[in-house]
Nucleic acid binder design. Structure first.
Length: 326
DNA sequence: TAGGCCATCTGGTCCT
DNA sequence: AGGACCAGATGGCCTA
C-alpha cells in the first residue's frame, strides 16, 4: 500500500469527498482518466498479490483545472461559512439585548452571553415557580452563577447594587461572589432602557435612573432612584431590565393611554404573530406586596419585536399569563 | 508577553 | 451533489 503523503494526501482527502463525486463528468481535463488508470491500476488492483482490491472512488491527480474548481468550491464554502457565522453572531447579539446588562460598548462575550441567558431564564423560572419577589442577593447570585468576574461585576453594576449588601453575604460558587466581585463602581453600566422616553411617562412611573445607571431591581421592586429622566447619555439599543416585564414585554398594541398610565403595575404585552391566536391584552403584573409599590409602565420596555423580529412567544408565556391573572 | 476572544479557513460528516 | 453543521487550526487584536 502506498503511503499518501503531503499534498497528495490532502488532495486525496478532499478529492475522495467531492472531486470524484460531481465533477468527473467535466471532461475538460482530458487524458486524466487514463493517467489515473495507470496511476492506480498498478498499485491497488492486484488481486494476485492477495491484497483486496481497494474500494472507494479512484484517486485522481490534481490537474490545474481541477485545482481551480476545487478552489472555487472552497471559496464558496468559505463564504457560506462566513454567512453562517455572521447569522450566528447576529442571533447572539439579539440574545445580548434581551439578557440583563446590554451594553454596546462593553459587549458580553459569546460564552458569557449564553451563561447569563441561561441564568436569567433560570431566575425567571424561579420567580414564576415561587410566585414571590426574589431576594436581591440570591437573584443576583443566580444571574451571576458561573460568570467570569468582569461579567459578574458588569451585572452587579447594571443592577446598581449596593456593594455593602454583599459584604455580609456568604460567598457562593467557591468564593466567586465575594464582596470584591461587586465593585460596582468599576463597571458603571448605563441602562439603555433609561433613555427611553417611556421611562419618564406618567406620575406613576418608577424612577428608573440613578446616576445614569439602571437599577433594574429597583425598577422592578421599587427602590431609591432619583428621577432623572430622558437623559441622552445612552442611546443604544434597549436592554430589558433585569425583571420580568422587560423580558416579556412584546409589542405595543395601542398607544399609551391614560388607562395605561394608571396601570402602573408590571404590565405585560403579548402580541404574537403565531397564528394570530394570542393577541393578549396587557396584563398587570404584580409582584408581591412590595412589588405593588412600584412598577414600570409597560411602555418602558422595548417592543418585543424590536429584538424578536419573528415574534417568538416567550417560553413561559402560558405560565406567566396564568400567574399574572391570579 | 501571556491569555482571552474572535474571525476565518479548512476538512470531515451528515442530511436532503 | 451540494449545503449545513461542526470542530480544529491559525492568526489578529486587545488587555492585564
Amino acid at each position: 500500500m502506498r503511503e499518501p503523503s503531503g499534498f497528495q494526501l490532502e488532495t486525496e482527502l478532499t478529492g475522495a469527498h467531492s472531486e470524484n463525486l460531481g465533477e468527473d463528468d467535466d471532461d475538460d481535463d482530458l487524458g486524466e482518466d487514463e493517467e489515473d488508470e495507470d496511476d492506480e491500476g498498478a498499485g491497488e488492483g492486484d488481486a494476485e498479490d492477495g491484497r483486496p482490491k481497494k474500494r472507494g472512488p479512484k484517486k485522481r491527480k490534481m490537474t490545474p483545472a481541477r485545482a481551480q474548481r476545487s478552489k472555487v468550491r472552497r471559496q464558496k464554502a468559505n463564504a457560506r461559512e462566513r454567512t453562517r457565522m455572521h447569522d450566528l453572531n447576529s442571533a447572539l447579539d439579539s440574545l445580548r439585548k434581551v439578557v440583563p446588562c446590554y451594553s454596546k460598548t462593553q459587549k458580553l462575550s459569546k460564552i458569557e452571553t449564553l451563561r447569563l441567558a441561561k441564568n436569567y431564564i433560570w431566575a425567571l423560572s424561579e420567580i414564576l415557580r415561587s410566585g414571590k419577589r426574589p431576594d436581591l442577593v440570591s437573584y443576583v447570585q443566580t444571574l451571576c452563577k458561573g460568570l467570569s468576574q468582569p461579567t459578574t461585576n458588569l451585572v452587579a453594576g447594571c443592577l446598581q447594587l449596593n456593594s455593602r449588601n454583599f459584604l455580609t453575604e456568604p460567598c457562593q460558587e467557591s468564593g466567586r461572589y465575594a464582596s470584591s466581585s461587586f465593585s460596582v463602581h468599576s463597571y458603571p453600566y448605563p441602562c439603555a432602557r433609561l433613555a427611553s422616553p417611556h421611562c419618564q411617562s406618567g406620575s406613576n412611573s418608577l424612577p428608573l435612573r440613578t446616576h445614569g445607571y439602571c437599577s433594574a431591581y429597583d425598577s422592578l421592586y421599587g427602590g431609591s432612584g432619583s428621577p432623572e429622566y430622558n437623559s441622552p447619555e445612552y442611546e443604544g439599543p434597549l436592554s430589558p431590565p433585569v425583571c420580568i416585564n422587560g423580558n416579556f414585554s412584546l409589542k405595543h398594541q395601542s398607544p399609551p393611554s391614560p388607562e395605561h398610565e394608571k396601570g402602573y403595575h408590571y404590565s405585560m404585552h403579548y402580541s404574537s404573530g403565531l397564528a394570530g391566536s394570542r393577541q393578549t391584552p396587557a396584563h398587570n403584573l404584580v409582584f408581591g406586596s412590595s412589588g405593588m409599590r412600584s412598577g414600570i409602565h409597560n411602555e418602558n420596555v422595548l417592543p418585543y419585536h424590536d429584538v424578536h423580529p419573528h415574534h417568538e412567544r416567550p417560553p413561559a408565556y402560558d405560565e406567566l399569563n396564568a400567574f399574572f391573572h391570579n
